[in-house]
Simulated assay, not measured.
Amino acid sequence: MSAPAEKPRKLGIAAGGGPLPLRVADAARAAGRDVFIVGVRGAAGPSIEAWPHGWVRVGAMGRFAKLFKDAGCEDVVIIGPMSRPALSDIVPDFRGLLLLPRFVRRMKSGGDDAMLRLVVEFLEDNGLRVIGAETILTSLLAAEGLLTSTAPDAAHQADIDVAIRAARDIGARDIGQGAVARNGKVIALEDIKGTDAMLSRVAAEHPGDAAGRSGVLVKLPKPAQERRVDLPTIGTRTVERAAAAGLAGIAVEAGGAIIADTGEVARAADALGLFVLGFPPSRVESLTR
């Protein structure tokens, strides 16, 4: 008689906003995993309450780990947008209080990646294994090539190169993951306010040529990025914001960015006349070496 199959490891999901936490939960359940979701207050939506779940406030690091451990989770995915909190908004529990000086130092000296590394370190110090969302839902990662019927022309490709260099530069300083270039010049850089805020600035300050779309948004991982968390992400909202800013398209690093729903993003971009392109990592290296 054959031995019974080993039960898959239970998955914990640290949920920020948007649809991705539940898409990962659905994929995990389809693969036979039990799932427990911890929603971050102020970020995750009430839809997580359809699943076994708990809630945690920003700064309550002890409760964060305890909820996963008490639920029997072994692996944890951190997924979904979360706004960087102001120091005054962090209400630590005892474990969080012990970590607070390190959080403050990283908030002052680094960006989001520095802080997320601290969260990953804390969870793994407590016996949990942090894994990338794409290990559960493989379709999340951007593929190489053109996603849309609209394609970039030579001027757009030149703008992509300009924006890659700019995004790589701010990424090396842990500032942001995105840049917008138009007509060979950088016109916007992402900061801690995120991509939506950057595109809103472009729409207000650089509305573009009424005769047609121009300029591109590029998103790529930071050079020293903790790739299990906070990979650059685009969705239909990104496409809509890019269109409102008069841009011609969006380009991301293949294998280094998450597309929330490839089909929906492609349909939205085609309807608005934008291209969406996945470029190879070698293009980044050739431009920035």
Rank of each mutant, 00 (worst) to 15 (best):
A86W: 15
L87A: 08
E74S: 07
I131V: 09
I131R: 04
L147N: 01
L123P: 00
P152Q: 03
P101L: 07
R106K: 12
E74M: 09
M82A: 07
D70R: 10
F94H: 12
R95I: 11
A86I: 13
S88Q: 15
I78Q: 09
C73H: 06
L99S: 02
L146V: 11
D113Q: 09
D75V: 11
V76G: 00
V77E: 02
E121R: 09
P92M: 06
I136E: 00
V76F: 02
R105W: 14
G132E: 01
L123N: 00
G72V: 11
T148A: 07
G80A: 09
E121M: 08
I78W: 11
V119L: 12
E74F: 09
P101Q: 10
G111R: 01
P101K: 08
L146P: 07
L98A: 12
R84K: 13
T135K: 08
L123I: 02
D70G: 04
L147K: 01
M115L: 15
R106V: 08
M107W: 15
D89T: 12
L128K: 02
K108Q: 15
S109K: 15
L140T: 05
G111S: 03
C73E: 00
I136K: 00
D93E: 07
V76M: 02
I136P: 00
V120K: 09
G96W: 05
L116G: 00
L100V: 06
L99T: 00
G111F: 06
D89S: 14
L141F: 07
G145A: 02
G127P: 08
D89C: 10
